[in-house]
Design a protein around this nucleic acid. Structure first.
Lengths: 156, 156
DNA sequence: TTTGGTGCAAAATTTTTGCAGGCTA
DNA sequence: TAGCCTGCAAAAATTTTGCACCAAA
């Protein structure tokens, strides 16, 4: 992420460039694909700026969401999570990437595939619903958990 | 939903059949595809049983989730929502149905299409990730909102 | 200097838990 | 009757807001 571009985006919205905003964006860029909660971001930010407050994290995250620099995602575990958004043009239709969530170890595997075109076309034809974005979560079992499970089966 | 089957499911788990549990399941069955929050269910339940408590709604919903009679979904608006689950065998692979969410009016259109087989196969081949379930949310604009918008364009 | 941002603490909101009493089996 | 279930209220947990002070433009 280009810091100068970020400063320009803030100025265009009449917002000020502050150390806290720069820090949060930098942290998010340093942890791609990690799905951080507000508390996670707070803890990381305190390492570099102990005086920062949790309320600032929430307010900054909201600014970054408005600028479409972050995506909010939920794994239905009680807190909102945030991750760096792809810049427009980095992928085909401006769609976000998606998540395969292991039901055993809880790890999250991002993937990029964008195979929903047929489905979206069908919705337009049948319902007149024009899709502009989508979010896909797959649940299942990752390779290492499946291998562990097979070991278990062999032994008992 | 068959009430006797529900009673049997409860008994098999050592749980008791109570008026509150029957009522909540009945309400969920009477409002298919409506994505009710705990407060929504509470309000509906009070109409028929004014003494019921909100805590009972949360506890009952948890029981119904465990029995896989309900699905929990989140539209990232701050509360968990619940809807009646499809019985096994009602759809192809045990997968749930999905949601197209209008960004304008907020209405939610359920759809059944199950066109992710290719994607899931590819994940298995590339990551060794075995998908057992998926959740798809599409965001966009429904027919009536699109028509209103076009009216607006014509008039101004 | 003016406007908006921050940190702290309190408030708001959703969800969970403890407990005394009541209902199911 | 024994044990689970409920209702109420309090607690927990995440997120938002009010306010005085501070920093950016």
């Amino acid at each position: 992420m280009n810091e100068d571009l970020f400063k320009q985006m803030l100025k265009e919205k009449g917002l000020k460039v502050t150390r806290q905003r720069l820090l949060v964006l930098e942290l998010m860029a340093a942890h791609p694909g990690e799905h951080l909660t507000a508390e996670d971001i707070y803890a990381l930010a305190k390492e570099q700026y102990p005086d920062i407050g949790l309320a600032t994290i929430y307010r900054t995250v909201q600014v970054l969401l408005d600028l479409k620099l972050l995506d909010r995602i939920s794994f239905d575990d009680g807190f909102a999570r945030f991750e760096l958004a792809k810049l427009p043009g980095e992928e085909s239709k401006g769609h976000h990437h998606h998540h395969a969530i292991c039901l055993d170890c809880g790890r999250v595997f991002p993937f990029e595939e964008d195979l929903l075109d047929t489905l979206e076309q069908s919705l337009m034809e049948r319902l007149g619903f024009a899709v502009t974005d989508h979010e896909v979560k797959l649940f299942g079992y990752c390779r290492s958990c499946r291998e562990n499970r097979e070991d278990g089966h062999r032994n008992g």
